[in-house]
């Protein structure tokens, strides 16, 4: 029996997010939200492990109530239960306050063997949550995991593979651990329509909502108050989504190309 908790985020589909250069704001109006893509891979990994070792998969998300749509989808994929951690006091949290809130919710769930996060979100792309939550729970954390090779339920150990710049690392850890996984490590399964419908009909059976008091969090450590960082301003980035730098072939073009590859950390 393996008890797995997956943390997901309900994020605006950044591909549709536009920026208002005059007001200096992000236009989120009319932008639909989606489950943060690598979080789908995290769910898939959890469900695959459940299939292999038995157990339960829970999903948590610190999000506004609209995220319930995403949690329903997670349940439809096969997750046993989802927890929406939602409170006005959680608003404007930075990664530290978010990680604190999530760690309180995880502690509230109680026993667990594995906590999985998507490596980073498409909107803020920090990759902080996994390591921070691991730290706050006082258990080891590993990012960039591509594969869970083996879980030994007797010895309570786990063998993981991860990819770094210059090679592949194999780790063994004592359970419980927190891991983060990236997009592409597996193919997330299609949410089962029947389950999607059941979740729609009996939402309360599958999804529980927890507020600040429910998870016993310190009000000073959550939301804006609990966030050590402040966003001073946001301005439009000069670069478009694709740079569209098109040149006629020449020695200079090739040199410029190499320069761009270097800037993009490819060479």
């Amino acid at each position: 029996m393996l008890k797995i908790i997956v943390g997901i985020k309900w994020v605006p589909d950044t591909a549709d997010v536009k920026f208002d250069p005059v007001k200096g704001t992000i236009i989120r109006e009319g932008v639909e939200s989606i489950i943060n893509p690598p979080d789908l891979n995290a769910i898939e990994l959890a469900l695959a492990l459940k299939e292999k070792y038995g157990g339960e998969v829970y999903v948590i998300s610190m999000s506004p109530p609209s995220a319930i749509k995403g949690l329903k989808m997670a349940v439809a994929m096969g997750v046993d239960k989802a927890f929406l951690v939602s409170d006005r006091k959680f608003a404007a949290a930075d990664t530290l306050a978010t990680s604190y809130t999530l760690s309180c919710a995880i502690k509230k769930i109680g026993s667990y063997d594995l906590v999985i996060f998507g490596e980073e979100t498409i909107d803020s792309a920090t990759g902080h949550i996994g390591p921070e939550v691991g730290e706050m729970l006082g258990i080891p954390h590993l990012s960039y995991v591509t594969e869970v090779q083996e879980v030994d339920l007797q010895q309570r150990t786990i063998k993981m593979v991860r990819e770094v710049e210059d090679g592949v690392e194999f780790f063994q850890a004592n359970l419980p651990v927190v891991i983060s996984v990236g997009v592409g490590i597996n193919t997330p399964r299609y949410p089962i329509p029947l389950r999607r419908l059941l979740t729609e009909l009996e939402t309360n059976k599958y999804i529980e909502t927890w507020a600040l008091n429910d998870i016993g969090a310190d009000p000073e450590k959550v939301g804006f108050k609990g966030s050590p960082t402040r966003v001073v301003k946001v301005i439009a980035a000069p670069m478009p989504a694709r740079r569209l730098e098109i040149r006629e072939a020449s020695g200079e073009t090739v040199k410029l190309f190499i320069k761009r590859l270097k800037e993009a950390e490819i060479i």
């Binding site: 498409i122 909107d123 001073v232 980035a237």
Partner: peptide, 15 residues
């Protein structure tokens, strides 16, 4: 640069 690099955010840690 969050939001896929569409914007630049200026952040401080005041305290």
């Amino acid at each position: 640069p969050p939001f896929g690099g569409r914007v630049h955010a200026y952040i401080i840690t005041p305290e």
